[in-house]
Simulated assay, not measured.
Amino acid sequence: MANRLEFDPALIPCPDFSDEFYAAFRNSLIIDPNHAGITNNQEAARHLKEQWEVVNTRQREQYQAQVLADQEEADRRREEAEVLQRQREAEDRERVLEQAREVEKKRIPAYSFVAGQGAHRKPLRIHPYAEKLMSARKYVPLWYFLPDAAAEAEERAKEVLDTNHYQIANEGGESSSSALVLVGTHSIRASPNAIPDAKLTWSQVILARGAYLKALSLGAWPNEHVKMFAEFFACMDTSEELNAKGGVRALVLYQAEMRMDWFKANERQKPYDLSVTNGAVLEDCWKIVRREEFDKSLIGMCFGSQVNDDQYTDYLSRNSTLSPDSS
């Protein structure tokens, strides 16, 4: 491979080989037997010029090829740089778009509305803990849909961050994987005032179910599920159990047992039609009611007067061994 030329041979002028400086070169050609055709200085000078032109022409061709190769290499590098730059710009745009998508995921959608149509009523504020569970399609006690829970939700909404303080909480319940964590008292946690479904009155069940059915929209339940829950409560409204003594209490227990069981079954991916009455569970609820009535009669004999439901509940809270949930 020829050595790289660092200059343009076209810029080199042809020497004057007739000059005295080249006399020795001319004389060597004249006396050289290999150049018999060269007999004088003019012929020798012409021969030297022709040889120089041959070499210079070859160098010019080499230099032009070299310039062309350099240009092609420069073009290739420029194209590579442009491709790399376009890739970087595309990656930057994709990164910006991905960040925008992440922001959009966290942003509450701006849903369409009918212009000029305001709210028909004051929106019911749902307890934040209930809202969290309903959005996750989890079981929520009906107490969270009573006015007491709504009032608590209103109160929590008015609290400001600078009044927040912290407490130790057990994250994960009583399981072996649970851990103690530090949480703010304004965090979305269960209310200490919540009442289990089994301890609600029938009036409270009726009062809470409407708000509960409306709150199902938070979990975006399919229409068939919403209809099933509505029919579940409607079936109890028309149940013959309501006409029997203790029937109201039996239905309260039935609602508490069946609704919780349905959500457990749904988590196991084996849900069933909740609106279909489960006779076996209802009979178990009646057994609890009859035992409660028997306990109240015993307590009444001890106190010498008839015991109502509130007195019975108060007595059980102080004497847990007679709890209807105990075996």
Rank of each mutant, 00 (worst) to 15 (best):
R268S: 07
F263M: 01
G300M: 00
K264I: 12
Q306V: 07
I288R: 11
E293W: 08
R291M: 00
E293A: 11
T313L: 02
G279V: 14
D284S: 13
P271Y: 04
D284Y: 02
R259E: 15
V307P: 01
R291G: 02
R259T: 15
D310S: 08
I299R: 08
V248S: 11
K296H: 00
P271W: 02
L274S: 01
E292Y: 00
R249F: 09
G300E: 04
L274R: 04
L282K: 06
L274G: 03
V281Y: 00
L251A: 08
D284T: 08
V307M: 09
V252E: 11
G304D: 10
C285F: 07
K245I: 06
C285D: 00
T277E: 12
R259N: 11
E267A: 13
V248K: 11
G279K: 10
D261Y: 12
F303Q: 01
D261V: 08
F263Q: 02
D284W: 05
G246V: 13
V307W: 00
M301H: 14
N308W: 04
Y312G: 10
E292V: 04
A265C: 15
G247F: 02
T313I: 02
A265T: 06
Y272L: 01
L298P: 05
E283Q: 06
S297A: 09
F294V: 04
M260H: 13
V276D: 14
V248F: 10
D310G: 02
L251T: 11
F294R: 10
R249G: 15
V281K: 09
N266E: 15
A280C: 03
I299F: 05
L282P: 03
D284F: 03
G304E: 06
V248Y: 14
K296G: 01
M258Y: 01
C302D: 14
W262R: 07
G246K: 07
V248H: 10
M258W: 01
G246P: 10
V281G: 07
V281Q: 06
Q255W: 11
Y254I: 11
M258Q: 15
K270E: 13
M260G: 12
S305D: 03
V248I: 06
D310I: 12
I288L: 10
I299H: 00
R259M: 15
V289E: 02
V276G: 08
Y272F: 15
G304V: 08
R268V: 05
P271A: 06
K296F: 01
E257S: 11
G246W: 11
V289N: 02
R268C: 06
D273T: 10
K270C: 05
A244S: 14
